[in-house]
């Protein structure tokens, strides 16, 4: 088991976490939009912001995995 093995496993775990997080956000946003279609714009903006914040953490971890891969 080299560092590269763990780095690739780590990248996979990052994807799982980010996927669950963004999936939950998108799902709740869909719920909100279907319940209140007139608030679509507000919900969409809030959804994109929250998704971007989660994505930032995910990318941060992905970059660390890349760095471990190079070692």
């Amino acid at each position: 088991m080299t560092a590269a093995t763990f780095a690739t496993i780590g990248a996979g775990l990052v994807t799982v976490g980010a996927g669950i997080g963004i999936g939950l956000i998108a799902g709740r946003a869909m719920d909100g939009i279907s319940r209140q279609p007139e608030a679509t714009n507000k919900i969409q903006t809030a959804m994109i912001i929250a998704a971007a914040l989660i994505e930032g953490v995910a990318f941060f971890c992905a970059v660390i995995c890349f760095m471990a891969l190079g070692k």
């Binding site: 971007a52 930032g56 953490v57 990318f59 941060f60 992905a62």
Partner: peptide, 13 residues
């Protein structure tokens, strides 16, 4: 820092 990484990593990936 998060702003930096987000844009950089998105485009690179």
């Amino acid at each position: 820092f998060a702003l930096t990484i987000r844009l950089f990593a998105n485009m690179l990936a």
